[in-house]
């Protein structure tokens, strides 16, 4: 579904990603983990076209995205849930969601958009309860649900999420990740950047570990969970406890 090859990307001539390649197959949840500054967000933004890569290519559904333009990516069925959520805080929950389908207004019937709205409400019943509330008045967890729901309104085949658990309580994180798992079961493909390695590797099929803008490990989630380097760096295990 998504292939990234040899991406070199950064800011003001300073490369953050140094020749990085990865792929996401249809129907997979793929996790990107790594420390702060490893290049995780830059990677998502480079794929989404928010940062223009200096080198490399992004291939989505067999089509090479030469300029990585955001609109082109959206038309190919890719949606980004950015870090910080970027909601319209003075607009209602419903308005935010409807805006998520903006690029589909011309090509899709109103009823099918409303049906999708209903399915988002089914996935996150809390959003239905707060349908008329402004986004700015929601809790952090509800805002994250809204950000994911808004991405789903464009009916994407690939959803990219940047730190969906950031700043949320453990119980809320659990709910968010359960929703991602449901989306996978519905056939969605998900690429997720996440610092909470343990939680995301429980639901992801595979993962990549970034370090200083390069790919250090890749493998199935169970392989990464068994990797001692990953355990020490991201799962909080001490040297002595690994042997236990």
């Amino acid at each position: 579904m998504l292939k990234v090859r040899n991406i070199v990307s950064g800011y003001s001539g300073r490369p953050v990603l140094k020749n990085l390649s990865l792929h996401v197959a249809k129907g997979e949840i793929v996790a990107i983990i790594g420390a702060n500054g490893a290049g995780k967000t830059t990677l998502l933004n480079s794929i989404a076209g928010l940062v223009k890569p200096d080198e490399g290519e992004v291939i989505l559904s067999g089509k090479t995205l030469a300029q990585n333009r955001c609109s082109r990516l959206a038309s190919l069925g890719c949606a980004l849930v950015p870090e910080g959520r970027a909601l319209f805080s003075s607009m209602s929950v419903k308005e935010n969601l409807i805006l998520g389908a903006y690029s589909n207004f011309a090509k899709e019937k109103k009823q099918s958009i409303l049906n999708r709205l209903d399915s988002v409400f089914s996935l996150f019943p809390r959003l239905r309860e707060r349908e008329t509330q402004t986004a700015g008045s929601l809790s952090g967890g509800e805002q994250q649900m809204l950000a994911i729901g808004r991405a789903l309104m464009s009916n994407p085949s690939l959803i990219m999420l940047d730190e969906p658990s950031m700043g949320l309580a453990p119980l809320v994180i659990k709910g968010i990740f359960e929703a991602l798992h449901k989306l996978k079961q519905e056939g969605k493909t998900i690429l997720v950047v996440e610092q909470n390695a343990r939680a995301i590797l429980k639901i992801a099929d595979r993962g990549y570990v970034l370090e200083n803008g390069s790919l250090l490990f890749s493998g199935t989630s169970s392989e990464l969970l068994q990797n001692n380097d990953v355990q020490r760096a991201y799962l909080g295990k001490e040297y002595s406890s690994i042997a236990d």
């Binding site: 390649s21 990865l22 792929h23 197959a25 990549y208 790919l215």
Partner: peptide
């Protein structure tokens, strides 16, 4: 083509390691 993508990713990461 998928295999070659996988090999390239793995090659790049094993070189880093």
């Amino acid at each position: 083509s998928d295999l070659e993508q996988l090999q390239l990713e793995r090659l790049q990461s094993v070189l880093q390691r």
